[in-house]
């Protein structure tokens, strides 16, 4: 193990330490359950007072699209929950600039305010995390 990794480990072991948790969402809603169950983790995690960020990359950006109406497929529309995250102090929502552009989307298409990150910014964000949960 490198010294740097060892030092980080010792720091992580301290009581009451706040870790940086990143939730990486790369899948579209409804086609599979991952988006919904990821959101359930985020909601539970708010009770733990950790430093939480959510990123939406690739088809994950479709989770945040406005105007979802699931009546015709018989599945619950969970997109309003993203708007509720703010009440739980989950305020760091990031989307990939490339993923948005590839899909012809802009911030106006999204249900919540987000910060758009280019690849370099996304790399930096990921690098500084302690725990990365991917869905």
């Amino acid at each position: 193990m490198t010294d740097e990794a060892m030092m980080d480990d010792e720091m992580d072991g301290e009581e009451g330490v706040i870790k940086k948790f990143l939730y990486v969402n790369r899948k579209a809603p409804y086609g599979t359950i991952y988006a919904l169950e990821s959101l359930e983790v985020v909601l539970i995690a708010t009770a733990f007072d950790q430093d939480v960020s959510l990123v939406f990359i690739d088809d994950g950006v479709y989770q945040l699209i406005k105007g979802q109406n699931t009546e015709g497929i018989g599945v619950k529309n969970f997109s309003p929950t993203y708007r509720a995250l703010e009440m739980y102090d989950v305020e760091k929502l990031y989307v990939s600039k490339d993923s948005m552009a590839e899909r012809g989307l802009t911030e106006d298409d999204l249900i919540v305010p987000v910060e758009v990150l280019d690849n370099d910014q996304m790399k930096t964000l990921m690098e500084e995390q302690d725990v990365i949960l991917s869905f």
Binding site: D9, A45, D130, V131, F135
Partner: peptide, 20 residues
């Protein structure tokens, strides 16, 4: 048990690895 057990694991462990 609850999802909190996952978050606790993330806090307590040095490394969390996701398989899926």
């Amino acid at each position: 048990s609850g999802l909190g057990q996952l978050i606790e694991a993330g806090i307590q462990a040095d490394r969390l690895v996701v398989f899926g």
